[in-house]
Design a protein around this nucleic acid. Structure first.
Lengths: 336, 336
DNA sequence: TTTTAGCACTCTCTTTGTAAGACTGCTAGA
DNA sequence: TCTAGCAGTCTTACAAAGAGAGTGCTAAAA
C-alpha cells in the first residue's frame, strides 16, 4: 500500500534520525539520499507518511521524526529482509565469549558487557529459568552443628546454594543419609515433579523431619530462583544519548532495572507469545510504560530451560545492529 | 575560632539548604531560626563565613550555599556531638533484617534496600573480603564425568562455588579422595596460608595432578573473590533529587556503579585509613572525581573478615540521618 | 497524473530590552 | 557590636523582534 518511493523515504528518514537525533526535513533527504526527486515531491510524500501515522512533526516548522508505528514498519521490513536474518552473527565474538567463560554466571556477565559495548545501549541477560530443568544432584554440606549448606545442581549446569539452620544438632552422617535418600528419589526429576511428590507424599516424610525440612527448602529454592539473577550493563551508555539528557527521561527504565520482578515482567511481556525473538518499540511495551524506549529481546536455550537476553535503548536505536548483536549473544549463550 | 553565632548560622544555613536545595539568604535565616539578630548582622556573619571558605554564592544576588568545607565543618561537629554517636541506631530495623535473612547474600540485599529507602539515597553493601577468613570446609561435587563443582565454605559462613572442567574423566571416588586430602591439610587455614602452602609445596602436589589442579582453582577463587559481590540499591532515588536532574550530573556515579573495580576503589579510598567509619564530601573523594556526591561508608565485621556498607548521595544529604542509618546497617551486618 | 518551482506562512530559537525581585555590601547611627 | 536603610548588582521572567528552517499550497511543467 505504501509506494516504493515512500518506503525508501521513510527508511531514509529513520536512518537519518537514528544517526543525528534531530528532525529531518525534505531538503536534507534529497541532499543526502539519491531519491531522484525534488524536495517538493518529498514533501508530498512526507505529508502522506504523516497522514498514515508513520512520522510526525514536533512543531510546524521542524522536520519529521518517526513515530513508534514508523519504527515498527521499518523494523518489520528489516526482519523480513535478508540483512538481519541471513548473515551469520559475529561468530568471532561468540567464540571469544565461550572461550573465556567457564561458568554460566561469568558467561552471562561477559555477554552482557559485550552486548552493551557493541550496541552502546543497556543490555540485560537473565539466567535460564529452572522450571523445566531436571535435578542432577543434591549435596548437603555440614557447616556447623546446627547449620548446613544445600547445593543443588541442575541439568544445564546451574548451581543453586542455600544455607539453613537447625533447631537441634545435626550430624554430618545424618546429612549424608538424607542426601542419599533424596538423591535416590529425585535425581532426574523436574522442579514441578519434585514439588508434586513433596506434596503428595507429605505423610511419608513426616516420619523423617530432617528430610522433610530439607526437601521443603529445596522446593522453595527451585521455585524462588525460577528466572532469577539478571545481569545488567551499559546504563551509562544510555545517559549519554541526547534523548535521555534529563533525569526524568531515564527514571522509568531505572525503576525497571532496580527491581528484578518488574524487569522480568517487562521481558516476559516482550516474549509472552511463543516467539523466541521480539522487538518492542516504545508504547508497545505494555507491562510498564516506557516512553521512548525499545526492547529487543530473545530467548536462549540452555538444555531444557531458557533464559532471556535483551537490549534496551532509545526507540531511536540502530535496530539492525542491535538485532544482530542480540542474535549473536543468543548464540553465545545457547547450550553447547 | 568561629564564634558561637557564626557556627549556629552555618548550621542553620546548611540545614535550610539540605531541606530546600535553594540558596539561603539572610532574611530567611532570621525568619526561620531564632538567631536573635537582624538580617544585617547575619549578612556580616555570612560574609565572614564566605571569606573563611565555608559557604559561597552562586551569583551576586543569590543567597549562600555551603561549600564542601562548610559541610565538612558541619559533619565534624555532628560526629563530635552526642546526636549521632550516643543514640542507639534503629534497633528494630536491625532485628527485622536479621530475622528475615538467613543467608549473608540475602541479608546484604535486604540491608541495602532498607538503607536506600531510609535515606532516600543510593546504598551499596559489599560482601566481606575473605582475605582473613579461614577455610571451614571444601566440597567437591561431581557434575558429569568431566565436570565438577567446587564449594568452598569459609569461617564466617560465606560460600563460594566454581565449576571446573577436566580434560579427562574423573570419577566421584577420585574427587572424594582429593576432597579429603585437601580438607585434611587446609581446613582452618587462611587464604594467604593456603596460597603459600600451595606455592611452597608445589612439588609434592605435582605427583597428584588432580589435587594440584583443584587446589589451584581454590587459591584463585579465594583471591578473585576477595571483596567481590556488591549490592546496590536506590539509583532512582538519586534521579529524583533536583541537583541530579541532568544526565550529565549523574553520569559519574553511574560509571562508578557499573564497574565493581571502580566502585571498590572509591569505597577503599574512603576507608583507606584505619578508620572504620568515614564521610567523604564532594571533592574529598580522590579515587574518582565525584563532584556533588558524598560517600558515607563504614566497615562491618563478620568474624575475621570485613565488608563495607555505604550510602552515596548529594553533598546536600541529611548527614545525621544517613550516618545513623549506616551505623544501623553496620550493626545489622555485624557477625552475631 | 506526477513532478516541480515558487512563495507565503508558521513556528522555534535567539537576541535584546525591560521590569521585578532578591540579596548583598556599605555607611552611618544607635 | 549591632542595626536600619539604601544603593548596587545579578538573576529571572516576560515580551518583542528578527533570523532560520521547513512546510503546505498553487500553478505550471513534464
Amino acid at each position: 500500500m505504501l509506494s516504493e518511493r515512500r518506503r525508501m523515504i521513510l527508511a531514509a528518514l529513520i536512518e537519518e534520525y537514528i544517526a543525528h537525533a534531530t528532525p529531518v526535513g525534505s531538503r536534507t533527504l534529497t541532499e543526502r539520499y539519491r531519491l531522484g526527486v525534488s524536495p517538493a515531491t518529498v514533501r508530498n510524500d512526507l505529508s502522506a507518511l504523516e497522514d498514515a501515522g508513520y512520522i510526525t512533526q514536533p512543531h510546524t516548522s521542524a522536520g519529521r521524526i518517526p513515530t513508534d508505528a514508523g519504527y515498527r514498519a521499518f523494523v518489520d521490513a528489516l526482519l523480513a529482509s535478508e540483512l538481519v536474518n541471513e548473515e551469520p552473527p559475529h561468530q568471532d565474538i561468540v567464540n571469544q565469549l565461550r572461550a573465556n567463560a567457564t561458568e554460566l554466571d561469568s558467561l552471562m556477565e561477559q555477554t552482557s558487557a559485550a552486548l552493551s559495548r557493541l550496541t552502546d545501549c543497556l543490555s540485560v541477560v537473565v539466567a535460564p529459568t529452572i522450571v523445566t530443568a531436571h535435578l542432577r544432584q543434591l549435596s548437603l554440606i555440614s557447616m556447623t552443628n546446627r547449620r548446613a549448606l544445600i547445593v543443588i545442581v541442575v541439568e544445564d549446569g546451574q548451581v543453586i546454594d542455600r544455607q539453613i539452620s537447625f533447631a537441634e544438632e545435626v550430624s554430618p552422617e545424618e546429612l549424608a543419609r538424607v542426601q542419599n535418600l533424596l538423591n535416590g528419589i529425585f535425581v532426574g526429576k523436574s522442579p514441578a515433579q519434585i514439588k508434586q511428590h513433596f506434596n503428595v507424599n507429605a505423610n511419608e516424610f513426616l516420619a523423617d523431619p530432617l528430610a522433610h525440612r530439607i526437601l521443603g527448602e529445596v522446593v522453595e529454592c527451585l521455585h524462588e530462583r525460577s528466572g532469577s539473577k539478571a545481569h545488567r550493563d551499559g546504563v551509562s551508555a544510555l545517559l549519554r544519548k541526547p534523548e535521555f539528557s534529563t533525569a526524568a527521561s531515564i527514571l522509568p527504565i531505572m525503576q525497571v532495572l532496580e527491581d528484578d520482578t518488574i524487569l522480568f515482567h517487562v521481558l516476559d511481556d516482550a516474549l509472552l507469545s511463543d516467539a523466541r525473538f521480539m522487538v518492542r518499540i516504545g508504547q508497545e511495551n505494555t507491562a510498564v510504560s516506557l516512553p521512548g524506549f525499545s526492547v529487543v529481546a530473545s530467548q536462549y536455550g540452555r538444555g531444557e530451560s531458557s533464559g532471556v537476553v535483551a537490549v534496551i535503548g532509545p526507540t531511536r536505536m540502530d535496530y539492525q545492529k542491535v538485532i544482530r548483536a542480540v542474535r549473536a549473544a543468543q548464540q553465545a549463550l545457547k547450550d553447547e
